[in-house]
């Protein structure tokens, strides 16, 4: 597939120290309306996969360990 790479800053960041996705937690992935978060199979931690963020905050509000931080996307900030 020949798509060009188009870099952008991810609005959602996850503190790998606090994230317990490797223990089976998928809360942030489940509650994101845009479905942009995934668990990285290599690290077992959640991360943002697609830059499609409504900065709506369920991922941060519902995370049981407060590992998720949402920044307003740079273009709007």
């Amino acid at each position: 597939m020949s798509f060009a790479e188009n870099p952008s800053e991810f609005p959602v960041t996850i503190d790998a120290e606090k994230c317990i996705a490797d223990k089976g937690c998928t809360v942030c992935v489940d509650v994101c309306p845009l479905d942009v978060l995934r668990i990285n199979p290599e690290t077992g931690k959640a991360h943002m996969r697609y830059d499609e963020c409504w900065y709506c905050l369920p991922c941060a509000l519902d995370c049981p360990t407060k590992a998720v931080t949402v920044a307003i996307p740079y273009l709007l900030r």
């Binding site: 963020c53 409504w54 996307p73 273009l75």
Partner: peptide, 12 residues
């Protein structure tokens, strides 16, 4: 803003 997802409505 030009950001596709920065809509008034939930962009879903």
């Amino acid at each position: 803003s030009g950001y596709l997802w920065g809509t008034y409505e939930n962009p879903t």
